[in-house]
């Protein structure tokens, strides 16, 4: 019973990691950049959903509001991600690897602070203009609890299944299916695979590599935004720092699965979620319990890096010329 419960908890957590991890891995697969600001794209998605709700539906918790919140989340994340690529990463395309990495960390801090200081004060020090009465984001902000998705939990033979769990796992299944279709069945998806395997030859085929890079950022942002909504529904509040640890965990998941491999990111996310949940429940004594769960998560990362550096599904990395 405990095992079944932790299985459910682990899959929920893992689905969230998986949704975010895909963004690390698709971007890495195309331009070999670890976009450390991707966790913030997840956070922006959560705030985008909240903003959509505050602007259009404040007080309304009917379930039909949810799809529109998700669209708002995706729009916010995608806009920020595309701007980030255009303004910060593209000019550094041919710079040494370290430059975009440091830039990513800078963007991450910038976006956190922007939300913290600017959410209820978009013009910052210029004025106190706040047309929709957004709350201050300097502390936790309550996330709207939507009917049907957040009501009482189900109890299946003693195993508690939160409704937000169903939402999160369902979101991962739908996103993964959509991604599979996109990557393997569409023209742009094939072009994306071509760019990740051999960018120069892809250009000889007539593929605009800049456009494919944007597509990669858009895909990552879309899934991260959905994760942001799922997180808000699950823990009922959001905050400007939520992208940091979630991003780090998702990055771990991407490496665990084999960075650059989309299915690796999904598998890595689920594995990491399960390891954390199981460790909390089944490791006895001082090292068990939730205070140690992050330790186990990163211990797994280190073990994988030592014994299988290419990750669970990653191909052996041949030095790229």
């Amino acid at each position: 019973m405990e095992f079944a419960q932790q299985l459910v908890n682990g899959l929920t957590l893992g689905s969230l990691y998986a949704l975010i991890a895909v963004g690390y891995t698709v971007v890495y697969g195309i331009i070999q950049l670890i976009n450390f600001a991707h966790g913030e794209i997840f956070m922006i998605g959560a705030f985008g959903a909240l903003s959509t709700w505050l602007v259009f539906f404040n007080g309304n918790t009917s379930v039909w509001v949810l799809p529109i919140m998700i669209i708002g989340a995706i729009a916010s994340s995608v806009i920020v991600a595309v701007l980030m690529e255009r303004v910060a990463y593209r000019p550094l395309r041919s710079a040494p690897r370290l430059a975009p990495l440091i830039t990513a960390i800078g963007i991450s801090v910038f976006l956190q602070e922007l939300v913290r200081l600017g959410y209820n004060n978009p013009l910052l020090f210029l004025s106190t203009w706040n047309p929709f009465d957004f709350p201050s984001a300097k502390q936790k902000v309550p996330f709207p609890q939507i009917d049907v998705v957040t009501g009482a939990a189900f109890n299946v033979g003693g195993v508690v299944i939160q409704r937000s769990t169903i939402f999160t796992i369902g979101a991962l299944i739908i996103c993964a299916a959509g991604l599979f279709y996109f990557v393997s069945r569409t023209r742009t998806g094939r072009a994306m695979q071509a760019v990740s395997q051999d960018p120069d030859t892809a250009r000889l085929m007539g593929i605009n590599v800049d456009r494919i890079i944007i597509v990669a950022f858009v895909i990552g942002a879309t899934l991260a935004a959905v994760a942001g909504v799922a997180q808000g529904l699950q823990i009922t509040n959001i905050n400007f720092k939520m992208g940091f640890l979630a991003g780090l965990k998702a990055f771990t998941a991407a490496v665990l699965g084999g960075i650059g491999n989309v299915w690796g990111a999904v598998l890595g996310g689920l594995t990491l979620g399960l390891v954390e949940s199981m460790a909390v429940q089944f490791i006895p004594g001082t090292f068990g319990g939730s205070p140690w769960k992050d330790v186990w998560a990163f211990a797994i990362l280190i073990l994988v890096l030592v014994f299988r550096p290419q990750g669970l599904l990653g191909a052996k990395v041949v030095d790229r010329a």
């Binding site: 094939r190 072009a191 051999d198 593929i207």
Partner: peptide, 19 residues
């Protein structure tokens, strides 16, 4: 040659017609 190694023959050929 620079064929796309993880794509199938047909996918490679279709990429040739990408333009």
């Amino acid at each position: 040659r620079r064929i796309f190694p993880k794509l199938t023959v047909e996918e490679n050929l279709l990429l040739g017609a990408f333009s």
